[in-house]
Amino acid sequence: MIDKTVDTPAEAVSSIVEGSVVMIGGFGEAGSPIELIHALIDQGTRNLTAINNNTGNGEVGLAALIGNGQVSKMICSYPRSSHSKLFPELYRAGKIELELVPQGTLAERIRAGGAGIPAFYTPAAVGTSLAEGKEKREFDGREYLLEHWLKADFALVKCETSDRMGNLTYNKTARNFGPLMCMAARTTIVQARVIVEPGEIDPEHVVTPCVFVDRIVEVSEPLHESRLIAEGRRYP
């Protein structure tokens, strides 16, 4: 039987090396793989390009990874957050690069990366400052922008249930970018609240098929960003 499980978050992220492009799932705290991110902070890997919708909250999870100086470039749609000054301070000091991407374009670029589609045309951002330098083309009398795929060396994703082979289900709006990032990374690392045996997830209910997943670690009681922030916690 194929068994992709590993014992600890530290083991799960151990192959991430300096300079890697890392997709990190989550929209705000929903779906944020916080234990995997904290393991990456413990590991201290630097000069990362991080891809996430946001830039984290408070001084835990993604915000802490950024605050720890491990991220040199951020690709995201909304780098403004409540309870966090870590990204703005580094950005204003010129210590972190930002590629701002409209949210739907970000999602589709990741999907394209996973689907082997190098580029596509979208109407989003036509006529705005984010269209500068981008190839334009008209279809049926309307203008579109050429956007390129996004791929990554690693994806860190949180799911609800995984079987040992890596078939995944998600929890509510924590699904967000998870299924797309699983497809777009060369190595996909998943933290699951529950790991079950193959066959225990109805094949009709699998959201991410196991071919997109490489490593799984069980985190049965994941931390919640908002609770940590309310308690004034920071990582490390």
């Binding site: 749609s77 909304y78 780098p79 403004r80 990204f87 703005p88 950005y91 204003r92 930002l98 701002l100 409209p102 949210q103 739907g104 374009t105 979208t122 109407p123 989003a124 951002a125 036509v126 705005t128 984010l130």
Partner: peptide, 16 residues
């Protein structure tokens, strides 16, 4: 100049 640019899904929504 000192604003943190943040667009979210607004450009996709108005285009679509």
């Amino acid at each position: 100049a000192d604003a943190i640019p943040a667009v979210g899904g607004a450009m996709d929504l108005v285009a679509g």
